[in-house]
Amino acid sequence: MRVWVFFVLCLAGKALAAPQQEALPEEEEVIEDVTTESLQETVGTNPVQVEVGEFDETANEEEEEEEPSDNPCLNHHCKHGKVCEVDENNAPICVCQDPSTCPETMGEFEKVCGTDNKTYESSCHFFATKCTLEGTKKGHKLHLDYIGPCKYIAPCLDNEISEFPLRMRDWLKNVLVSLFQRDQDNNLLNEKQKMRVKKIHENEKRLEAGEHSVELLARDFEKNYKMYIFPVHWQFGQLDQHPIDGYLSHTELSPLRAPLIPMEHCTTRFFEECDTDSDNYIALEEWAKCFGIKDEDVDKNMIV
């Protein structure tokens, strides 16, 4: 998953970048005490926003230490937004982190936008704030929406939604080729995956990475359809982690969705429409269909 998130951040800007929307003025970027009703009217609100979980939200809140230690907190782990402290009995407990204790941020790229339309200095500041709101209605509704400062994100129009899978398919192919080229015994791909990607990498008909028109991407998908089947399956397998059950939840989509939203304003609508049966989960068959993969080419063995 770390590899996946790394390439989402590093390659999305080049292969998936859509025209950027103008950022909000600073005074509108941060909104205090925003209510659900007022968000509907706020200029900076993402109009295609949905409630999703945060990264690693399914991680255990606490894990008991495995070996004795002078520091009870040494092997005692807390979920995002909490830190370990020792109680009066010298036992480790997880408590909400004070946002002011978060590491100093280095730049704009560390900021994140919450579903309250508020820009947080970093994910640490966001999770610490969310922790202090646990048990409240506001805390229940607060999630990490996307990476970067809050800004206006235009709705995805009907004539734009069809372009999203074209760029995504090409990007996924390029991500896999990059992993294959950089692997060199780093275990970025398993042996079966390497064999599949090697065929793509060595194919002389492969469209090289670059900023291509949607017309060219559409023609390439039609002519070299088989080259795109595995990348679509691979992405599904990378996201299907908590738990591995053949379905993608909103939480599992978050590591992909959060970095892409600021660059691809059709991201949320695309994922919503992939869920054709509206059960809040995207099955492999639904995922593949969204990317134009034929029913007969859907193979669960490809995501292992």
Rank of each mutant, 00 (worst) to 15 (best):
M1A: 05
V5C: 02
F6S: 10
L9A: 07
G13F: 12
L16D: 10
Q21R: 05
D33I: 05
L39Y: 03
E41D: 12
Q49N: 09
V50I: 14
E54A: 10
E57S: 11
T58H: 11
A59C: 08
N60V: 03
E61H: 14
E66W: 05
E66I: 08
N71P: 00
C78S: 13
D87V: 08
N90I: 05
C94Y: 01
Q97A: 15
P99M: 04
S100A: 15
N117S: 15
C131G: 15
L133T: 03
E134V: 12
G139Q: 11
H140I: 04
H140D: 14
L144T: 04
I147F: 14
P149N: 11
K151R: 12
I153F: 02
C156L: 04
R167K: 15
R167W: 07
K173N: 10
N174M: 14
D185Q: 13
K192V: 05
M195H: 09
R196P: 01
K205D: 12
R206I: 10
A209W: 00
G210V: 11
E215I: 11
L217F: 03
A218Q: 12
R219T: 08
F221M: 10
K223W: 00
K226I: 02
P231K: 03
Q235E: 13
D240F: 00
D245E: 14
L248Q: 03
P262C: 10
T267H: 02
D275T: 08
A283T: 15
E285N: 14
E285L: 07
E296T: 09
V298C: 09
N301E: 13
M302D: 00
